[in-house]
């Protein structure tokens, strides 16, 4: 494996005509951990990754691997491996030939082709034309391409897409293993739930702008208490006067920052009967949707 480097994105911007796809994006991806690159479809993830790899020219800013732009790397495929979302295969070419064509161009040892095909579980299908591959097999071949140069940095665009549950389980442990070997791993997804079991750090973008950059644990929204009473208005004013943080919902009230016992005690003190008292774990997915969804920051 080549040395792992950081991925440094600084003030990266891209506009396609009038459309601003990515705006002033800055973040750093560190070696040894799996970093999730999240955002809804159309948020600018793929455009950002393609700018990283020199396939799309940025309108402004820079993206470097340990200080060097992709096209300045002496041995690009041996430094950064990538699996991009689009299935970029000639359907009439076999998997072995596919890898060997690009391995030759990048000056990668021939024996790596069979090694990576075995690593992703395609060894038995190496001589079959890619046109007959299932979506899951194409994803595995994309991953084999990423691993071809045994790179210290891996950039994977939606690698979970199209995999069956067994494949998803496999890729999760595989990502962990790669990061455990000290590699820098950046994985994009539009669904937090797809990657939350395998990532440590997350970078979240929405409408081309950074909305979160930090640990996965810190993203968790915590627990809130759902509470209701036949006298909902009375309960709400009682809780507020007791100093609780109350949000009126359609079917009751939500209290954050207080335990269920506290909320029950407040109601008892005010003499208001309760019809419901339930703790609810809001979870990562909700926090993610709050960040990127309609209610999120602009």
């Amino acid at each position: 494996m080549s040395t792992s480097t950081t991925i440094d994105v600084r003030g990266l911007s891209k506009s396609f005509g009038q459309v601003q796809a990515v705006t002033d994006l800055s973040f750093t991806v560190r070696p040894g951990v799996v970093t999730g690159f999240l955002g809804p479809n159309g948020a600018g993830k793929t455009t950002t990754l393609r700018m990283l790899l020199g396939l799309v020219r940025p309108s402004g800013g820079s993206a470097t691997f340990g200080g060097r732009a992709y096209r300045e790397l002496a041995r690009p495929l041996a430094t950064v491996g990538m699996a991009l979302e689009a299935s970029s295969f000639h359907p009439g070419r076999s998997a072995r030939h596919h890898l060997s064509v690009y391995g030759t161009a990048a000056g990668i040892a021939k024996n790596r082709v069979d090694e990576v095909l075995g690593q992703v579980g395609l060894g038995d299908f190496a001589d079959r034309r890619v046109g007959g591959y299932s979506l899951g097999m194409r994803q595995r071949l994309g991953l084999a391409f990423a691993l071809l140069g045994d790179p210290g940095v891996l950039v994977l665009d939606e690698p979970v897409n199209g995999l069956d549950p067994e494949g998803i389980k496999w890729i999760r442990s595989f990502l962990r293993q790669l990061a455990g070997e000290g590699r820098t791993v950046l994985v994009s997804s539009h669904l937090l739930s797809e990657v939350q079991q395998s990532v440590d750090q997350v970078v979240i973008i929405s409408r081309g702008e950074l909305v979160y950059d930090g640990g996965l644990a810190a993203l968790d929204g915590g627990t809130r208490i759902l509470v209701d009473s036949p006298d909902r208005a009375g309960l709400e004013s009682a809780l507020r006067s007791a100093g609780a943080d109350v949000l009126a919902l359609e079917d009751g009230l939500a209290v954050t920052g207080s335990s269920a016992a506290d909320v029950g005690a407040m109601a008892l003190t005010a003499g208001i009967p309760l019809s419901r008292l339930t703790p609810e774990h809001t979870g990562l997915e909700k926090a993610f949707l709050d960040l990127v969804g309609e209610g999120g920051r602009p």
Binding site: L55, M82, A105, A106
Partner: peptide, 22 residues
């Protein structure tokens, strides 16, 4: 044109970023 059609310019330019060389 098959490079455009099958999107194989992506792996091609990843393996050799200097497009003039390709």
């Amino acid at each position: 044109t098959s490079e455009f059609r099958h999107q194989t310019l992506t792996p091609t330019f990843l393996a050799q970023p200097h497009r003039g060389t390709v």
